[in-house]
Design a protein around this nucleic acid. Sequence first.
DNA 1: ATATTATATAAGTATTTAATTATTTACAAA
DNA 2: TTTGTAAATAATTAAATACTTATATAATAT
Lengths: 104, 104
Amino acid sequence: MDIQLIEKQLKALADINRLKLVACLKQGEVCVCDFVEVLQISQPAVSQHLRKLKEAGIITERKVGTWKHYRLVGELTSIVQTVVDELEAISIAQCKKEGSSCSS
Amino acid sequence: MDIQLIEKQLKALADINRLKLVACLKQGEVCVCDFVEVLQISQPAVSQHLRKLKEAGIITERKVGTWKHYRLVGELTSIVQTVVDELEAISIAQCKKEGSSCSS
DNA sequence: ATATTATATAAGTATTTAATTATTTACAAA
DNA sequence: TTTGTAAATAATTAAATACTTATATAATAT
């Protein structure tokens, strides 16, 4: 594995908000709107974090109407997989706002 | 494993120069003076990188006269161990300057 | 078509990070 | 004790990062 890619993936993970996103995604798909509630940051901030994770090959997206659902990619590198394994899964209560409109 | 510690260790590793330091340390102890040659950055910059790795619990030091030798800690967390495993060991030629004065 | 909703992008700002040079500390040798 | 060498710390600066608000895009519903 190339050292440049290792650096890119580590940089993508080395942020408390993105780690929380990944912890939520352990549970399955989540949409952007839910993350805004969970992380208490603005919607554009969430979008930017998700983009960074996507560019590092850690997550992918799926469009569902006007929503977008994000999930972990199927084949994670061993480094990312190890981080995912170490992260406590954050409870669904914390990952999805109550009665989230975007539950597919 | 606490999410704060995960973040700290990931931040410590998420830098190309510190990844190179860790790759060198796979081979065994190296002293600060050698790293200056390898990374082509100033001695204080190397010291600061080493401090960050030490504060994240990734390396320890050993004083040898006026030199300091750094090495990976014995019990790495699974995340750090996975990164170490993925890193190509950089050849000794690149990790120690020729006839390094600080080879203990 | 118009309005509404979800998300992305753009632009600007504040904070953090990584480098530099200068200085200090610690040890060794003369 | 003075001199030299290795490394750490301090102070500063430059670059990268993570937010913000404002705006644009895309799909849905009226």
